[in-house]
Nucleic acid binder design. Structure first.
Ligand SMILES: [Mn+2]
Ligand SMILES: [Mn+2]
Ligand SMILES: [Zn+2]
Ligand SMILES: [Zn+2]
Lengths: 139, 139
DNA sequence: ATAAATCGTGCAACAGAAGTGCATTATTCA
DNA sequence: TGAATAATGCACTTCTGTTGCACGATTTAT
């Protein structure tokens, strides 16, 4: 995707398109798998961890990315797709973690099914992670 | 529950029932909510963190407790119930995290529904956490 | 155009959770 | 009783996430 295109996308989300932010956006765009702060740190070894941290935080606040807790202990981030409404209310798609290649992907079209809770419990949010073998890791 | 009872329960799981282990077991037993290592550390302020850490690890290895990743960033532990087979294959009950009282409980009778994955993906494990308001926190 | 205000970046330092090495103490077993 | 084994406690480390503060860049007002 062209830099100009990313610039306008960021602007539409009220994120000022700095050089670093465009690079981070592009990195997330080019990778199907969700990325952690450490992933960014390793890839952009020139840039400071704090900058990347705050970049991703800004992205999250402005609804450009969403956080993923895949159970590995390190938070991952993925670009929000068009129509992703994780800011307003949690977008209830599930995530898949591959035990082989250690990558996490959004399964945006698979929604978390409604669960019937015991009396007195009310659901406000949910997180479902399926772990197994991904399509890129054949047996 | 009597100490002698806990002793024999631990022995049945091939865990030597030391004083500390019995205390930890009893603590988990008396609390409905799952507990973190820090919770144990705060409660047993006489004992060392490492001891508690290894106690809970031993419990986990021997199938006395199971780990819970509730999305808070700190791992919690809860006693395995009779018939819990989280060692052999993952016991697919779900967990509930209360946004108000910050407590996590097992919903052992609610199983994670089967999810139809895209072609090429195979599921081996799953984690579902519902977040909201628990029965002890009325509106 | 210039100055003031705001925003982004980088360095350092810190906090919390988890984990390891090693010495000491307690328990089991020959 | 003594040797072997297991449990405990202390110190230290790693990893992730987070904040304070100073400096440089960019925007906005005059
Ligand atoms: Mn996602
Ligand atoms: Mn449970
Ligand atoms: Zn894979
Ligand atoms: Zn509650």
């Amino acid at each position: 995707m062209k830099t100009a295109k990313i610039e306008s996308l960021l602007q539409k989300s009220n994120v000022r398109p700095t050089a670093m932010r465009i690079l981070v956006y592009n990195f997330l765009l080019e990778n199907e798998a969700a990325k952690s702060l450490t992933d960014l740190e390793n890839y952009f070894d020139k840039s400071d961890r704090t900058t990347l941290y705050r970049t991703i935080k800004t992205f999250e606040d402005k609804g450009v990315v969403h956080q993923i807790d895949d159970g590995t202990g390190t938070t991952k981030y993925a670009l929000c797709e068009q129509g992703c409404n994780c800011q307003i209310e949690t977008d209830l798609h599930l995530h898949f973690y591959c035990n082989i290649c250690d990558e996490t992907v959004c399964l945006t079209d698979r929604k978390i099914p409604n669960i019937n809770l015991p009396d007195g419990y009310t659901a406000e949010d949910a997180n479902l992670v399926i772990k197994g073998r991904c399509e890129k890791c054949p047996e």
